[in-house]
Design a protein around this nucleic acid. Structure first.
Lengths: 202, 202
DNA sequence: CGCGACGTTGATTTGCCTCAACGATTGTGG
DNA sequence: CCACAATCGTTGAGGCAAATCAACGTCGCG
């Protein structure tokens, strides 16, 4: 079992004692997924947290008309789950699917909650992580409200060059909130005038 | 100094010892604001957290063209701050202004951070709060991507009836991501066919 | 090879914005 | 207490950004 990357991520914001780390590891398991396999299906029980050791996943919501909307991409070192389901003990809102073959570290929400009650250091880790996510999401929200489609894509390319290359364009289009066709015209324009001024926010 | 509501909010997710509560209170102060007064100005130091005892505030971002975009409303029992500034020790991204006369509980980010290091119970409180916010914001993000303007407003009315009545329409328009003029046509339509199906998400 | 997924391009439509004008309401100073 | 300004909400005409629909080239894969 390879929990090294997992543990070193935890250690970035919190110190656990050796025995705490051992106990934590006993709650973990490894889950592998083939490309296109579903990790979470909307409506099912989504009360699990995953850490990406290897691979790439996408989280998306399916609206009433059957249209998919991507909300999140996860690659190595990222966490992924249906946060809504975990937090409110509700059925999952979103689907999560592997874009590549994946190796994930798994912990059930229940095990995690119990462990958190006992181990303040881990509370601290997640408090900091969630705070960071919240600040980041707030920035994304500002972006969605204030930037044109073209600007949003330039911003995305500048901030996540790896995702821009690794993920099929139609998924990026959906993530940024427009159609694949429109994404195309934006994209060719963005590449043409590559003079592209760096965005104001980063 | 009236910290009762503040403390009872904390107690909802965490238990502090009596001495911890006393120490916490010694870090707090009361801040009052008149209507239209600024609490935080974009670009300034925003490393403070506030809890609303009384009143109503709005958080907004000003884009490059000078247009305001509302991102958050806070009323009694809510917390408010420039989370980005607090988290990344950066200048504030947003302005925060009083929509009514306000009474706030104030704590500086530095005092809060120090206290958190010492008091695991408070880490827990904020871990849970941030997790709830994150789940809620994720839902809002889904909404912005998947719903039409009209649907977004019906959703907002259903979920926050108090805010719908308490806050000037133009601010709600901006929060939902469209102009006051367009908001109006949407609003009159929404009221007319009040048959309005309850939204799928809540 | 042939099928299906993906990316590309263009014609048409539409949701929402812009601009402008006009009541209604609130606030303010004389 | 009234007059006037300022702000807010309302309505309509015209315009633009982005969606929709449809057709076609290309690539990877069974």
């Amino acid at each position: 079992m390879d929990f090294e990357r997992f543990l070193s991520t935890i250690r970035r914001h919190a110190q656990l004692s050796e025995s705490e780390e051992t106990r934590l590891c006993s709650l973990l398991s490894i889950k592998t997924l083939k490309r296109k396999e579903l990790l979470v299906r909307a409506g099912d029980d989504g009360r699990h947290e995953y850490f990406v050791n290897k691979g790439c996943l996408r989280t998306y919501y399916i609206d009433e008309k059957g249209v998919e909307h991507n909300t999140y991409f996860a690659i190595e070192g990222y966490w992924v789950s249906d946060i809504y389901s975990r937090t409110f003990n509700a059925p999952a809102l979103c689907n999560i699917v592997a874009l590549e073959d994946c190796e994930l570290v798994h912990i059930s929400n229940m095990a995690l909650e119990c462990f958190l009650k006992d181990v303040p250091g881990l509370e601290r880790f997640f408090r900091i992580s969630y705070q960071n996510s919240l600040a980041t999401v707030h920035l994304k929200q500002i972006q969605l409200l204030s930037m044109s489609g073209c600007e949003r894509y330039n911003y995305f390319r500048a901030k996540y060059p790896e995702l821009d290359m690794r993920i099929p364009q139609k998924h990026i289009a959906s993530y940024l909130g427009f159609t694949p066709e429109f994404f195309n015209t934006v994209r060719s324009k963005a590449i043409r005038d590559n003079s592209s001024k760096t965005p104001r926010l980063l």
